[in-house]
Simulated assay, not measured.
Amino acid sequence: MRENTPIIGIIMGSDSDLPTMKSAIAICETFGVSWEVAIVSAHRTPEKMVEYSKTAHFRGIKVIIAGAGGAAHLPGMVASLTPLPVIGVPVATKHLQGVDSLYSIVQMPKGIPVATVGIGNGENAGLLAVQILAVNDPDLLKKVQEYRQNLTQIVQEKQTKLEDIGYQKYLEQL
């Protein structure tokens, strides 16, 4: 969303992380929250990472979502350089399925927190970023509450369908 000054920064270490991070972008769009997206590698473009991290709050960014696989240093390094909340998204990797990324992101030293979502869960990262922003935005808070109510409704509809057609027919439709 480019119409407004971005308030959520969505960054990733490589373009191969974009399939994971696209759901964070989709959540921003669902809630009407302005965002920007960038490839910012902790290892291949460290100067860009430092510049991005140190200037994000001056540019209007309020929350950073950082996706990374493998060594997954990006979320932690960004968190060490910015005063903003950082949400790490461990990206599934070829050999270790993202467990390596998860461990790297959650094992931050005291004083440098990184909120971390499940492996490959860009959607929850987007939701957490929106919820952080909703603390000071009553309209956004209302949208979050409506989103949650919709989730409840979806589950209730599934339960009704399960009861109506039985588990075997339900399974056939999955």
Rank of each mutant, 00 (worst) to 15 (best):
G126L: 01
A66F: 05
G120L: 00
T55I: 08
I87P: 03
I105R: 08
A38T: 05
I119G: 11
E29G: 00
T30H: 05
L128Q: 06
L81A: 13
A66Q: 07
A56P: 07
L18K: 13
S14L: 12
I11A: 04
T152Y: 14
V33F: 02
Q156W: 04
I154G: 06
A42T: 06
N150I: 06
K94F: 11
V99G: 06
A72Y: 11
V91A: 08
L133T: 06
V155R: 14
L18V: 12
Q149N: 12
N4D: 15
Q156M: 13
I154K: 15
E51I: 13
L141N: 13
V91N: 00
Q149H: 12
K110A: 10
R148P: 10
V144R: 03
V106G: 03
G166E: 03
V86Q: 05
G69H: 05
A92V: 08
M49L: 15
V89D: 10
K22H: 07
T45F: 04
I27Y: 02
T5W: 00
L128A: 15
G32S: 10
V86D: 05
K62M: 06
M49I: 14
T82A: 11
Y170R: 01
V50A: 14
N136K: 09
K110L: 10
V99K: 10
I119V: 14
P75Y: 11
R148Y: 08
M21Y: 05
M77K: 05
S80L: 00
S101C: 07
D137L: 11
E163W: 01
D139Y: 09
L162V: 03
S80M: 04
L162W: 09
N124V: 06
M49Y: 13
A115P: 09
Q159A: 11
Q97D: 15
G118P: 12
T152H: 07
L96H: 08
V106F: 05
V91D: 02
I39F: 00
A71F: 02
L141V: 01
A134P: 01
V155L: 15
K143M: 03
I65K: 09
H73S: 08
A92P: 00
C28E: 05
Y147H: 07
N124I: 12
V40W: 10
E51P: 04
G118L: 14
I154W: 13
L151A: 09
M1A: 15
L84P: 03
I61E: 03
P85I: 13
Q107D: 10
K161V: 13
G118Q: 11
Q145P: 02
E157Y: 08
I105Y: 00
K169N: 14
Q149C: 11
V89I: 12
M49H: 09
H57N: 01
T20N: 02
